[in-house]
Computed example of a mutant assay.
Amino acid sequence: MANKQEEIPEWFLWLGENFGKVLLLVVLLLGLLFGVAYYIEHRLSGIESQLTYVPPRSYQPPDLSQYDSGDVTPDQLADRHLVYVPVYSHIYYEGGSPYPLETTLSIRNVSPSKPIYVSSVQYFDTSGKLARRYVDQLIKLAPLETIEFLVERHDSSGGSGANFLVDWRSDSKVDAPLIETVMVGVVGPQGIGFGKQGIEVTPDSEP
């Protein structure tokens, strides 16, 4: 019997005595390997996302010189349109408390092949008085190009009944641009956002 016990390898005896410790070590090593693999996989996914994701830039007023109309003059553009776009620099809630909003005016040339021209963008307050001019020269929007103007949240000059008047033109028949405002506001935990599309009105006379 003693001879048979002597024939059992020492490592086998050691394994039997330390089986619990060995098993724990194997589990820890496997866990470490899986953890490293998981980290590498998600790290690579994050790098790939960063390569494809371009964060939106902070708003900067458009440089109108980049929308040069060339030698084109308003007189050469026979097809003229005037669009009224509602703006709410604030709305009322809780019995009449003002809720301030930030407004983005978006003018989108939806034509995939023809430019349009914007000759005037004016901002009027609730009483109908001119508060600000955003465009007072002829600018060109290339096919599918967009230009945006911001009325900041702290700018309450317009009031709840403010509006934009957008004068746009073309030298031939073209799809009407999409002209709309988007209002967004956050006060404490509350937030609100909505949009309004412009409607075409009849211009009284040439500006």
Score class of each variant (00 low, 15 high):
A2M: 06
N3W: 02
N3K: 05
Q5D: 13
Q5P: 02
I8F: 13
W11A: 12
F12R: 10
F12I: 15
L13K: 12
L13A: 05
W14N: 08
G16S: 09
E17N: 03
N18A: 05
L24I: 14
L25N: 08
V27G: 07
L28Q: 09
L29P: 01
L30H: 03
G31W: 13
L33N: 08
L33Y: 12
G35I: 09
A37T: 13
Y39Q: 11
E41G: 05
E41H: 01
S45V: 03
E48P: 00
Q50G: 08
Q50L: 14
Q50R: 15
Q50Y: 02
T52L: 12
V54F: 13
S58V: 09
P61H: 07
P62F: 03
P62A: 09
Q66G: 06
Y67K: 04
D68T: 04
D68M: 06
S69V: 13
G70Y: 00
G70L: 04
V72H: 01
V72E: 05
P74C: 12
D75Y: 00
Q76D: 11
A78M: 04
D79E: 12
R80D: 07
V83S: 04
V85I: 15
V85E: 11
P86D: 08
P86G: 03
S89I: 12
H90G: 05
H90E: 15
H90V: 05
I91W: 00
Y92C: 07
G95Y: 09
G96I: 14
S97P: 01
E102M: 12
E102W: 01
E102H: 04
T103N: 12
T104P: 01
T104S: 07
L105F: 06
L105D: 10
L105A: 11
I107W: 03
N109H: 02
P112Q: 01
K114A: 02
I116C: 01
V118G: 06
S119C: 12
V121C: 14
Q122R: 15
Y123C: 14
F124N: 11
F124C: 09
D125A: 06
R132A: 15
R133D: 14
Y134I: 11
V135S: 10
Q137T: 13
K140L: 09
K140D: 06
K140T: 04
L141G: 00
L141I: 02
L141S: 00
A142R: 03
P143A: 05
L144P: 02
T146C: 07
E148D: 05
F149N: 11
V151A: 12
H154E: 15
S157R: 11
S157E: 15
G161S: 13
N163C: 14
F164R: 08
L165I: 12
L165A: 06
L165Q: 12
V166Q: 02
V166K: 07
D167P: 03
S170T: 04
S170K: 00
S172W: 01
D175V: 08
L178D: 08
E180D: 03
E180V: 05
T181I: 07
T181L: 10
T181P: 07
M183T: 03
M183Q: 08
V186Y: 10
G188V: 05
P189F: 12
Q197S: 03
Q197P: 00
Q197I: 04
G198S: 06
E200I: 00
V201F: 00
V201P: 04
T202V: 10
P203W: 01
D204P: 00
S205N: 05
E206T: 08
